[in-house]
């Protein structure tokens, strides 16, 4: 029975590690995709492109941070999720959704003022949503989730 429990624990640990490694792989593939787009698409490095890359790097930095955290947790044999982490994600999702609604309203307003392609607006919106989610997660992770 003990061996079975240990085997299940070990299996859980491997699955957690796999998730963390997946985050790193995904981040690497995004960087590779950006580089290929820049290199093969003959895109010039103007302010807009640099700003976009800056934001992508920021979001990837956040993903890598989460990956490192998960890897450390898996090494320590901690559960990947517990009641607090679930609550943090729940609050983060709720707040980021709320902020994102305003974000899209602002984007639609800006779209009328400056010339932007539909793809650019959508790309900016999706990227901004990712940034908002990361910021909300950091906020709840440092502030904590009390009932009040």
């Amino acid at each position: 029975m003990l061996y079975i429990s240990l085997f299940v624990l070990e299996l859980n640990n491997i699955i957690d590690m796999k998730r963390a490694i997946m985050i790193f792989l995904l981040s690497a593939s995004v960087i590779a995709g950006c580089w290929m787009w820049l290199y093969y698409g003959n895109e010039e490095l103007n302010t807009t492109n640099l700003l976009t890359f800056g934001v992508i790097i920021l979001v990837l930095g956040f993903a890598v941070l989460v990956g490192i955290k998960r890897l450390k947790s898996a090494n320590r044999g901690e559960p990947p999720k517990d009641e607090m982490s679930k609550k943090v994600i729940l609050r983060t999702a709720a707040l980021s959704y709320y902020i994102s609604l305003y974000l899209w309203v602002i984007l639609i307003y800006i779209k009328d003022k400056v010339t932007m392609d539909t793809e650019e607006v959508l790309g900016t919106g999706i990227l901004a949503m990712a940034v908002v989610f990361a910021c909300c997660w950091l906020y709840f992770n440092f502030r904590g989730v009390r009932s009040e």
Binding site: E78, P79, D82, E83, M84, S85, G144
Partner: peptide, 17 residues
């Protein structure tokens, strides 16, 4: 059976279990 982080937050009164 929780993460160490949860204990840290509990001790700082930043989380109600």
């Amino acid at each position: 059976n929780v993460r160490r982080e949860t204990i840290v937050f509990l001790e700082k009164n930043k989380y109600n279990p």
